[in-house]
């Protein structure tokens, strides 16, 4: 094996046009470039290949690469738009765009529905909710009796599953989150408004002469 890796080791915004990405998202060109600084940092944390692996994603979230978590896994899978097993820069920006304070509410509702629809059946099913609750309890080292878990799920389905078919469809979810808007709090990252302040080094790598607002 030679000394040089012939594969490109990093992806620059030049390969994914920041102007195009900015035109299709809530981000400005400068913000897309600042996101690239964040992307570079995450995608090089284990292997510097210009792509975010599941391990790198978990490391960025938990600061611990060995931590397995079904929610972080699910978010990773949804960010992996092209189903390649890794997140490229285009996926990263388009997915984070849903979390932008200015992103359409319906996009946030749709993303959160897919997040909790673990098996991608088009429904959030009772057993999925139970699986997520148990995972959350394990993660927070909280112990609840099975009957308490069932009571929480019963109550939730009483409020959310309007047609009583033991699963929540997208219309029921839209209705449920409109009555419980706090559930969408995780779908907005105020940091995305100030991303150029958080990653000022983008200025040194910028290909844009004038900041496009």
């Amino acid at each position: 094996m030679g000394c040089f890796n012939s594969k490109p080791t990093r992806q620059s915004p030049g390969q994914v046009d920041p102007v195009v990405l900015a035109s299709q998202t809530a981000f400005t060109v400068s913000e897309v470039e600042a996101l690239f600084e964040l992307f570079k940092s995450i995608s090089s944390s284990v292997v510097d290949d210009g792509l975010i692996s599941k391990e790198e994603f978990q490391l960025a979230i938990f600061k611990n690469r060995k931590k397995e978590n079904i929610f972080a896994n699910r978010i990773f899978d949804l960010f992996d738009v092209k189903r390649k097993g890794v997140i490229d820069f285009d996926d990263f920006v388009r997915s984070l765009n849903v979390f932008h304070p200015n992103a359409p509410l319906e996009d946030k509702i749709d993303f959160s529905f897919r997040l909790y629809d673990l098996d991608s059946t088009g429904f959030i099913e009772r057993q999925e909710v139970k699986q997520m609750l148990i995972a959350l309890l394990c993660e927070s080292e909280m112990k609840l009796a099975d009957e308490v878990i069932e009571t929480i799920i019963d109550k939730t389905f009483m409020d959310a599953d309007l047609n009583k078919d033991e699963k929540i469809d997208i219309v029921e979810w839209q209705n449920f989150v409109s009555k419980n808007p706090s559930l969408l709090k995780i779908m907005t990252l105020p940091y995305l408004r100030d991303i150029t302040t958080s990653f000022p080094s983008f200025v040194f790598n910028s290909n844009v002469d004038e900041i496009a607002a």
């Binding site: 909710v129 993660e139 609840l144 308490v148 929480i152 939730t156 995780i186």
Partner: peptide
Amino acid sequence: VEPVTMNAFELISTSQGLNLRSLFEK
């Protein structure tokens, strides 16, 4: 807040794995 008074999704949404804010923390 007592867990039994919360709906399941309120509890689930407290997972650290859903907190993408940590992506921005070094």
